Structure formats: C-alpha cells, structure tokens
Simulated assay, not measured.
Amino acid sequence: MTDSSEHCGGRYSYGLAATLSIIAGKWKPLILYFLLDGPKRYGEIKRNVHGVSAKVLIQQLKELETDRVLVRTDYKEVPPRVDYALTPLGRSLTDRIVPLCTWGTENMADMVSALVERDTLR
C-alpha cells in the first residue's frame, strides 16, 4: 500500500483510517446516503434513519458538519427552517458509499444468515 501518513497529515497511517473516522458511528453512513438526492430537513432525515434517537442524530449531524461533509443552512425564518446538504467533499464520500449499499442489497440473504449464526455464538 502506498497510502502513508504523509498523505493524511501524519494523523492516520492510511486513508481508510481517516475515512472511517469521518463515517464512524452507526448512523452517519445512512445520514449521508439519504442526503444524496438533495438537501433534507431534520424531520426528513429522522424519518429516513429508523431507530436513531433525536440526541444522537443531532450529535452526528453536528460532527458531519464539523468534518465538512455536510452543511447546515439556517434560513432565519419563523417558524424555524433548517436543512442539511452534502458539501462537494461529502458528495465525493457518499458516492463511494453507494457501491457498499449495492453490495449489501445483492448479498442481503447471506449477510442475514451470517448475522443470525453470529448471534447464536454469543
């Protein structure tokens, strides 16, 4: 592998580690995926990302904004209107997540079977 720490500012040994630090968290890849087709308001994201608590969703949205993969736009209106959209960096990252979604869809039965088997080993 040629992806050394000098390519990642010295903080990470590999680009994959840097990428995983951005998308780490149960919900971040889903949040990014659902923003692919355009900006979404908080409620839309919450409806799409089933099972996430409000607290965790807000935290993960803030982290993704800090990491510069999404932008939060506050329209300064009453009632309040805020939406979230991918930045160019976020779009380039999310475009790489799409093949993982495709792989998951194509291999769903095998994954479900493996996960059931793993759960029986616990």
Results as ranks from 00 to 15, higher is better:
L16C: 05
R118S: 06
L100P: 00
V71W: 06
D67A: 13
D37F: 13
L100R: 01
S21N: 14
I97Q: 01
N107D: 01
P39R: 01
L20C: 12
Y75Q: 06
S92R: 07
A24V: 02
R122W: 11
S53G: 13
D37K: 11
R122C: 06
Y33P: 00
A114C: 06
L70Y: 03
C101F: 12
D67E: 08
C8M: 10
C8H: 13
S5Q: 10
L86P: 05
H7S: 11
L70R: 02
G9S: 09
G25K: 02
L115H: 03
Y75V: 02
K55V: 12
M108K: 13
F34W: 15
R122L: 13
E6I: 15
Y33F: 15
I22N: 09
Y75K: 05
S113R: 11
L93A: 02
V71D: 07
Y33K: 10
P88E: 14
M108P: 00
K76A: 13
Q59E: 09
Q59N: 10
R81K: 12
Y12K: 04
V78D: 05
A85K: 07
V49G: 08
T87E: 03
S5K: 15
E117R: 15
L86F: 11
K62L: 12
I22V: 14
V78T: 06
E44F: 01
R96F: 09
A24E: 12
R91W: 03
D110I: 00
V98M: 15
A85E: 15
G25A: 08
G38L: 06
R72F: 04
G10M: 03
S53K: 06
E65Q: 11
H50Q: 09
D74S: 14
R91K: 12
Y75F: 15
L121F: 07
V71S: 15
W103M: 10
M1F: 09
V69D: 01
L70D: 02
V98D: 01
S4R: 07
L93M: 14
D37V: 00
R122I: 05
I58E: 13
T87C: 07
V82T: 12
E63A: 09
K76W: 02
L32M: 10
S5C: 11
I23N: 07
A114I: 01
K28C: 04
Y75N: 04
V116G: 00
A54F: 04
A17Q: 14
